[in-house]
Simulated assay, not measured.
Amino acid sequence: MTRAALYLCLAAALAFALPARAQAPHHPKHDYPTAARADYVIGCLAANGFKRELLDKCACGIDTIADLMPYDDYEKADTILRLQQGGLGERGALFRDTPIAKDETEKLRRAQAEVNLRCK
């Protein structure tokens, strides 16, 4: 085999190897329970009309959040947001007006902003 043919074979091998490597599965920094991941993806799909083409975007969303915040922080913020939306009246102030509630939900909002940047 000539040197030129060898280089051509190497270039072809690299061309086929790079796309496969670029599509390697992403493992987020923090591990979330499967049920929490599924709940996020289903909620994301429901909010967007259950369009199949959004499945990867929604999965990317929870992976991004899992990269940025531990599950305990995510769970706190998600619970606070659910309680805020639940219409608890005056009792809901505890989940809206405390510094802890504001800090926890702000962490999740920052992570969701990053989702909008990373997952298109």
Results as ranks from 00 to 15, higher is better:
92 G>E: 01
102 K>A: 10
100 I>H: 07
98 T>Q: 10
86 G>K: 15
102 K>D: 09
69 M>L: 15
14 L>D: 03
13 A>K: 08
34 T>F: 00
76 K>I: 10
9 C>Y: 12
8 L>V: 12
117 L>G: 02
51 K>M: 08
84 Q>G: 06
42 I>G: 07
38 A>H: 13
80 I>T: 02
109 R>W: 06
60 C>S: 10
83 L>T: 08
25 P>D: 13
99 P>I: 04
97 D>S: 13
75 E>W: 04
68 L>A: 04
50 F>R: 08
99 P>Y: 04
55 L>K: 07
21 R>I: 05
75 E>C: 06
6 L>C: 02
30 H>L: 05
12 A>L: 15
15 A>S: 05
18 L>G: 01
9 C>P: 03
45 L>Q: 11
55 L>P: 03
70 P>V: 05
62 I>T: 01
104 E>M: 11
71 Y>L: 06
67 D>P: 00
83 L>Q: 10
56 D>Y: 10
63 D>N: 15
103 D>N: 12
35 A>H: 07
99 P>F: 04
67 D>A: 04
80 I>N: 00
120 K>Q: 06
107 K>Q: 08
35 A>Y: 07
120 K>R: 13
116 N>D: 13
60 C>T: 09
41 V>M: 10
94 L>S: 02
100 I>K: 11
23 Q>Y: 04
42 I>F: 13
70 P>R: 03
36 A>S: 15
25 P>E: 15
95 F>I: 04
50 F>Q: 07
4 A>E: 12
34 T>L: 12
38 A>W: 05
97 D>G: 09
21 R>S: 11
101 A>W: 01
86 G>V: 03
63 D>W: 06
118 R>I: 01
107 K>V: 02
89 G>P: 09
49 G>H: 11
41 V>S: 02
60 C>Q: 12
85 Q>Y: 08
42 I>K: 11
109 R>M: 02
65 I>Q: 04
18 L>K: 02
118 R>L: 15
84 Q>E: 13
112 Q>V: 08
30 H>V: 04
101 A>L: 00
1 M>Q: 13
71 Y>H: 13
34 T>K: 12
30 H>A: 05
102 K>H: 12
77 A>T: 05
20 A>I: 09
42 I>W: 13
76 K>S: 04
63 D>H: 09
85 Q>F: 05
